[in-house]
Every structure is written in C-alpha cells, then in structure tokens.
Design a protein around this nucleic acid. Structure first.
Lengths: 225, 225
DNA sequence: TCTTTGAGTTGAACGTGTTCAAAAATGATG
DNA sequence: CATCATTTTTGAACACGTTCAACTCAAAGA
C-alpha cells in the first residue's frame, strides 16, 4: 500500500505497475514473474511488494485504472442516448472495446468467482469498483422510462450488471475470430431481454414475475452478491 | 497417470487419494500441502505425482469418484419419478446432499471457469464427466412429456445442466445457515422455469422464443461449452 | 554541522507445487 | 536361482510468490 503521495514514490509505483502490465500482456498473468516485473521496472522484488500487496494487487490496480479511465466515456454514452437498448449497447460496447487489448489481464480478474477471493468481481475488495459501476446501470434504468412490475424494477440495475459480468466472462474465453460469438450473444440476448421487459406486464406472465420479485427480494436482501 | 490396474499399485493410489481427501477436508484445498498429503499416505511426495499429474488431479479423481458413486442413486430417481419437476428436484437434491460433506473440495472444482483450465467444469478434461452427467438431464427431459418449441427442446438438457452448475456454484459459496438461501433459490427458480416452459407456446411469447432458438443453435453449434 | 527519523529499497530465505535422476522393488525370462 | 526389464518409490532440486531484517539516504530537528 502506498503511504503518501510523494511524487518520487508515486513515480516508482507507476513504473512498477507499467512494467507489470507490460509483462502481463507479453507473457500472460500466470507466466509473468514478480522477479521479471521487478527487473523490468529496474527495482528489487521487495519494492514491488512495498507498493502492491501481492501479484493480484497489480491486476486490481489495472482494474481501478480502467474504471477511472472509462468513466468519462460512459458519462458521454449516458448523455448521448435515451433508450435502455442504446445505453446497454453503449456501456457494454465501451467496456469490451477498452478491455480488448488486455484480455489476458481481464481473464486473471474473472478467473475467481469465489466471493472470498480478493480479485473476485463479487468480493468485498472490489465492492467500491462494483458499486461505482452499478451506478451507471442505475442511471441507465432510471433515466429511461420503463414499464416493469414494481417488485422487479428496483433490482433491474443489479440484474443488468450481472448480465454484463456474464457477457464479459463469455467474451474473455471466446476464441472465435474477433470474438464474434460474443457479439452475437450480446445482440440476441439484449433484444430478448428488452422484449421480455416489454412483455413483463402482460397478464399471462404474472405467475412468472411474481415469484421472480419475491426471489430477488430474498436474495438481494442484505447480501454482498 | 496410472499404468496398469495391478492391485498393489491400485492400493497405493487409493491410499494417496484417501489421504488427500482427508487433508483437503481438514485444511481446505489451498492450505493442504502435497508434502502433508504424502506424509499422511506414508509415501514420498514423488509417489503422489506418480499417480496423479498434479494437486488438481486429486480433486478431479474425487469428482470422478463422486460421479461413479452417485450414478445408482440418480438412476433410481429417474425410475421413481415422472415429472420434470420431480426429476430436477431429485437429481440436484442428490448432488447437493452427496457433496455436502465436501463443500471445500467442490469449491476447488468450481473455482476455475476458464475452459482451458483442466479443473474447469467446461474443460476438455472434464468432458467425459460432463457428458455422462448430461445424459441424466437428457433422460429427465425425453421421458417427460413436455410441450416446448421444437427449436428449443433439443437444447433443454444442456440448459438444465447449466442451470445445475449455476446452482451448485451458488451453493458452494452460500454462507447462510444450512445453505437455506440455495434451497430457496432452487425452489423458486425451478418453479419459474417450469412456468416458463408451460407458457412458452403462448402466441405472445413467440417473439421471445424465436430468437432464443436461433441463439442456442448458434452457440451450441459445435462448441465445448 | 551533526543526529535522528522513517519512507524507500534490497536480496537472501521460506514454503509452496512440481520435476527428475537415481534407487529400490517387482515380475518375467533364461 | 540368476538376470534383466519394468514398475514403483525416493528425496533433493527448481522456480515460483511472498516475507522480512537489514540497509540507504534525504529531510527535519538539535
């Protein structure tokens, strides 16, 4: 953990992070060595551990940096679009585009589903990033005029966030050329989701959405997920 | 890799596996040490690696053993029940009951989603187990008389299997007392799924299930997932 | 100017999973 | 029984992530 924001120290930290990302991109996360990263940064192994708690923390720093750098673009997307479809396409499209050159890194990030693992998107350590990201989906929902059963609407942002996670997961391991399978999955599931939302208030679907609401309430009562 | 099925050698292998499972249960997968496992089995570290390719392979062996041991019970469940609901409850209930004393081990198994990782439920290494397991869901579907759009029906077993995986994943990390949250999730989502299947042929739902069929066809065309 | 402080840095050392050359045990063949 | 080939077993050695006692050195205080 960095202590103070002294320029000199901050510069070293930055150099180590940059070196790490470079080596990660070249070798992949697992094959990358802390010794090699330190060497690349012109520093001893110990120094890397002075600034970052562990190898994982380097990926985490990348995640935070990504979050930070993507924020303006996401703001712009929210401002420039009106419908939920446009916004979902914009947000998720932006993520995938940004992450594209670093798929190997994102893979290290999504490799852990265990909420107890610090790197997990569901962990307590990633809660700030998650919450901030959730904010975008909240705004995407609230500022669109959607008709949806009142029991479900409050959970929609979290469901959309979860949908995004699933999609990114698929994308990370998608080996089709240019990840076209992900693109198709995205396109079709998004359309289906929007149709489902439009149909949600139809009377014959009530037996489906009533238990859904109860379930969401029970699951999201006060949990980390 | 074990070469031949000579009793003597097989006995050593069994002793190592048993020792491993014991230590895993006591310490958890990560904290367990290959040296400790070997010691527990009264054997040198190298011997463990003679019979098992890696630490992971020990969990894999447990997985295979579980599959083998659960088969008769699953057969019985299929024979004793008629409706899809009964069968799903039976199959998944049986799995959770069997795995309950070994949650830490299952956790090591579900910890990797990367299809390239040998331990992943989606990997090539686990394909035989997966296919065999899929068979139960296939029979559960085929032998139940279900009305479902023809474009979707063929994929239902795989979807149910995926549903099972998700549920087990939730269960593994469910820290509520007696995993009651999982139980609730199971109960509600299963009911919702059955309602959805019943509603699937309603005309207003056609715009939803038509793209769903196309999507499934495209995704499951010839992939490992 | 000299002393003290503590952030920054070092690299040897630890415990880990895994490898592998060599030794031992086993079994087949003469 | 003796000889050889094969299977099984051993444990030192390797590379890894991580720790930590010791060191540097610029700045603050005397």
């Amino acid at each position: 953990m960095a202590r103070r924001a002294i320029p000199k120290s901050e510069e070293t930290r930055g150099r180590i992070l940059a070196a790490a990302l470079k080596v990660f991109r070249e070798r992949g996360f697992d094959a990358a060595t802390m010794r090699e990263i330190a060497a690349e940064a012109g520093v001893a192994v110990g120094a890397a551990y002075y600034y970052f708690d562990a190898k994982d923390a380097l990926v985490m720093a990348f995640y935070e940096q990504a979050q930070e750098e993507m924020a303006p673009a996401l703001e712009e997307i929210l401002a420039a679009s009106k419908t939920l479809e446009q916004r979902m396409r914009g947000i998720i499209g932006q993520k995938l585009a940004y992450f594209a050159p670093n798929r190997a890194l994102v893979s290290a990030l999504t490799a852990h589903i265990d909420p107890a693992h610090p790197l997990s998107p569901f962990s307590r350590a990633t809660a700030p990033i998650r919450d901030r990201d959730l904010g975008f989906f909240e705004r995407a929902v609230v500022e669109s005029k959607l008709r949806l059963p009142a029991a479900i609407l409050p959970y929609l942002p979290r469901l959309l966030w979860l949908y995004q996670m699933g999609l990114v997961l698929f994308w990370v391991y998608d080996r089709s050329p240019k990840q076209e399978r992900t693109e198709m999955l995205f396109d079709k599931t998004l359309k289906m989701m929007l149709i489902a939302i439009r149909l949600a208030e139809l009377p014959p679907l009530r037996p489906l959405f009533k238990p859904a609401g109860e379930l969401l309430k029970a699951i999201y009562g006060g949990a980390t997920c």
